[in-house]
């Protein structure tokens, strides 16, 4: 997993960058668009209907997954700044957690879609 000649950081940096973009640009647009569609953020029933339908929920869950990778990448590097020198264990725990949360999101989405279909 760890290679001295080449860092595997480009993968995590890519996900981190994508997550950052999502938080800064896509998320506000989606929230505003949903507000526009429901005419109110307090109309939770309609908001739920929109966000829980298959396609919007897929978009929403993809965004959440990218946010997760962004946040945990930050945690990983902040550990280093706090003088906790990160090694294989930190790497596995933090990015493993990101992978687990991503998996949980995907499972949630799958359950949702199946519930809607059947």
């Amino acid at each position: 997993m760890f290679r001295k000649d080449r860092s595997d950081e480009p993968i995590y940096w890519g996900l981190f960058g994508a997550g950052g973009m999502v938080v800064a640009i896509a998320l506000p647009v989606i929230i505003l668009a949903t507000m526009g569609l429901t005419h109110s953020l307090t109309d939770t029933v309609m908001f739920g209907e929109i966000i829980l339908s298959p396609l919007p929920s897929l978009v929403f869950i993809s965004l959440m997954i990218l946010c997760t990778w962004h946040a945990l990448h930050r945690v990983y590097h902040t550990l280093h700044d706090l003088n906790v020198h990160v090694g294989t264990l930190h790497h596995l725990v933090i990015y493993g957690l990101a992978a687990l949360i991503s998996l949980a999101f995907i499972v949630c989405w799958a359950i949702l879609v199946f519930k809607n279909i059947f």
Partner: peptide
């Protein structure tokens, strides 16, 4: 690029 690609290259910069 061999130096840049290492953990001690660009990837150490936060």
């Amino acid at each position: 690029m061999k130096l840049v690609n290492q953990d001690t290259g660009v990837w150490s910069c936060s």
